[in-house]
Design a protein around this nucleic acid. Structure first.
Lengths: 142, 142
DNA sequence: CTACGTGTTCGAGCGCACTCTAAGTCAAGA
DNA sequence: TCTTGACTTAGAGTGCGCTCGAACACGTAG
C-alpha cells in the first residue's frame, strides 16, 4: 500500500503520515526501489490506536513515550500498562468534568427557554458589558 | 477588585485576563484614577461561564460570537440559545466518543493484564517497528 | 518521447491560545 | 524622600500539531 492509499484508509493526510514518521510516531516505512513508502495493512491497527489516544487528548509526546517503550519490546509491558492506566484515569476525570459542564449548560439553556414573556434577557443577570472607549487613552495624560 | 485579586479568584493569570479583554472576551474594565482595572465581583460569573465553554472545547472565536450577541442585547436570545444548543450537541457527541475510546482502552489494558506467562508481549500482534537506517540515504544515488 | 500522476525531501509557515518582556507609572509604607 | 511591588501598555515569543511549498524523481499511458 502506497502512502496515498494509506491516507485514504486511515483518514490522515499523506503530509501527516510523513510527519508522524519523522517524529517517530510511525515506524520508518519500507521503501520500494524508487524510495516510495510501501505499507502493510497492519499499520492501520497502530494508526487507529494512535487515533484513540489523540481523541482522548493524549499529547504527542506521551504517544511517543509509548511508541518508544513498544520499540524496546518485552520488559516494558508494566510501564506501558501504567502509562495507559494513568491516561485512562485522566480521560475518566475529563468525562466527569464534561458531564458536569453539560448539566450547567442545560440550566443555562433552560434559562433561555423560560417563557419569553417573563424573561426577556436571562443574561441581564450577568454584569453589563462595556467597550473600550475609542480615542480617549484613559484618564492619563501621556 | 484589582487584577491580581481577580486572577487569584478566577484561576486565570493577570496576563490572560488582559489578553481576554484585548480580544473582547471580557468587557473593557473600569479603571481607577491611575488607569488600573477595578473589577466588580460579578465578572466572576462570566469568567466561570467562559471556563465551562473552554473546558468543553469551544474555540475562542465562538465564545467571542456569543459575547458579541450578548453585547447586542435583547433580540439575540434565540441565536445565543441556538449557539449553546449546537455546542451542547457537539459536547455530547464528544463524550460518547470518549466513552467508546475508554472501552477500547479497557480492552487494551486487559491485554496487558492477561497472565504474564501466556502473553509476554501483547503488542507483538502489532506490526514490527523499524527505525530509519542512519547514514544510508536509501537506495537512491543522489 | 512526453506528459501526468504520485511520490520524495527539506524546511518554512500557520492557527490557536496563551505567555512573557520591556519600559514605564503610581500609591503606600519605612 | 526613597523603595517596593502591583500595576500599565505594546508587542514579541512560545509550544503544539499540523500543513504547505518548492524542487525533484519515478513509472506508466498515450
Amino acid at each position: 500500500m502506497k502512502i496515498g492509499e494509506l491516507a485514504k484508509r486511515s483518514g490522515l493526510t499523506a503530509h501527516t503520515i510523513r510527519y508522524y514518521e519523522r517524529i517517530g510516531l510511525l515506524p520508518y516505512a519500507d521503501r520500494d526501489r524508487s524510495s516510495r513508502r510501501d505499507y502493510d495493512a497492519s499499520i492501520l491497527v497502530w494508526i487507529e490506536f494512535l487515533g484513540r489516544l489523540k481523541t482522548t487528548g493524549m499529547p504527542i509526546r506521551d504517544m511517543l513515550l509509548y511508541a518508544e517503550l513498544r520499540d524496546r519490546g518485552s520488559g516494558t509491558e508494566a510501564e506501558r500498562r501504567a502509562l495507559l492506566e494513568r491516561h485512562r484515569e485522566s480521560v475518566r476525570a475529563h468525562v466527569d468534568e464534561l458531564n458536569a459542564c453539560l448539566l450547567a449548560l442545560d440550566t443555562k439553556i433552560g434559562g433561555y427557554a423560560e417563557t419569553e414573556q417573563r424573561m426577556k434577557d436571562y443574561d441581564a443577570t450577568l454584569p453589563e458589558r462595556r467597550r473600550k472607549p475609542v480615542g480617549a487613552r484613559s484618564a492619563r495624560t501621556r
